[in-house]
Design a protein around this nucleic acid. Sequence first.
RNA 1: GGCCGGUUGGCAGAGUGGCUAUGCAGAGGACUGCAAAUCCUUUCACAUCGAUUCGAAUUCGGUACCGGCCUCCA
Length: 484
Amino acid sequence: MRNTNLDLLLYDTLTRRKRSVGTVSFGGGSDIINYYSCGPTVYHYAHLGNMRAYLFNDILVRVLRVIDYKVNYVMNITDVGHLTDDGDDGEDKLEVGANRENRTVLEVSEMYTEAFKEDIDILNIASPDIMCKATDNIAEQLSMIKTLEKKGYTYVISSGVYFDTSKIEDYTALSGVKLEEQMDGKRVSVLDKKTASDFCLWRFNEGITSNRSMSWSSPWGNGVPGWHIECSAMGHKYCKEGISIHTGGEDHIAVHHTNERAQNIGCYGGDWGVKMWVHNAHMMMGEKKMSKSSGDIIRPSDLDELGIHPLSFRLLTLQSHYRKQMKFSIELLKVADKLYKKLRHKISTELEFYPSKLKLDLDHEDIYKERFLEPILSDLNTAKGLSFLIELSKNLDRYSKKTASIIVSRIEEIFQLDLFKIIDDNDLNLSSIPIDVLKLIDSRKVAKENGDYKEADVIRNRLSLLGYKITDTSSGQKVQKITI
RNA sequence: GGCCGGUUGGCAGAGUGGCUAUGCAGAGGACUGCAAAUCCUUUCACAUCGAUUCGAAUUCGGUACCGGCCUCCA
């Protein structure tokens, strides 16, 4: 049994309203949340735009755990089946990645899976409990396609086995799109499918893909699974009772999740399925979103070089709501970075870590709940929770050190900004500084001691042009390398 | 064309029927040889038209504009 009656409200894409997660939990004490999130396709690096989605998942899972749900957090790794192009003309992304880099598909998927794990780690995103690969679950996918065939939801054409979407009554319920209003055939290639919205369950080796390196045998012929079937099959395998919450980017609503849902309905007829769909909005750079196809990407591990702490990006996402498009630019990142460093400096130097489960007195318990937890529990209003944290950090004298520390500790259970860790202030060690720069620094020290401030200022300007920032502190000159 | 969402101060971005969001920037001050950093104080807002209301930036309706998705995408 959970030891709290607090609950989280989330916006459910299917019913288009906020619903309590208590209505979708499983287990005797209704305390288990089966959580399934669409993960990366490992043919390339994941970028900051992708990271917004994983940050959203991370925050959500942490909130569920704070209010005492047992979360079974499952994320798939797509290493087969995801095409570069629309439903029927594209090549498998993994094959493309392998060709591009002159490696095997396995090497490519392993390399980018590792890179993904490193990147989420940099942003303090916890690893899911289960990360399952599509290629490890081919049997489950085949078995699901067989059931769909038995139940009459499939048909076979020259390119593969297809799902007959006309058999699902409310096929477009997630997106609300009216198929007959769609511009059929304009973007979706119809080929010899019965309906443009029909999608591939099993793709035969033929045409441009006849010499792909990945292939499995099946009752219908050798080939590879379609993209959507992996999520249905693995979701069912790892979330036996059903999926409480299924998340993903909003771009998945109209196609991927719509098809996943159709497969579930066809295969399990409503006995098993997804109880709540939650989608995050995209991050926009200027006029367009950051995307791998445009080539203009920034990874978490690139941030250091820009002089920006990676967790400043985590902070930036906390400032906006997950269902709203988030504007992104280096400038905004710098603003967040400034705030981040200030906040962390303050907390790390004035408070100390206390375990979050320590009790607070009633008044402070209420303050924590009203100012922080309640906004978070109302569809994840992290921005409001964050404004409380900032306020708190500016008014530490109103709290005892222990009380403030416990509150921040509780906030950190969710925000994970490493606020208690002293920040490295980028003070350079002398050996990394060129000798002529060192000489200048030294001569400025002499000039200052002699009261020759004019000369000291001249030297400071010269150093600044050389890329070094000099700051006078009570303990002498501090040297920092200037970044962008 | 269909679906979804947005329009808040210089920028970013929350929000509630009557009460300071918050951050960065700006202004003033403290500190400093001067800067930087830090701290304190502070200016500036709710697309437009109509309706409901004692009262609406907050509810409802119209208008205008903007964005996303419908195609690989988080």
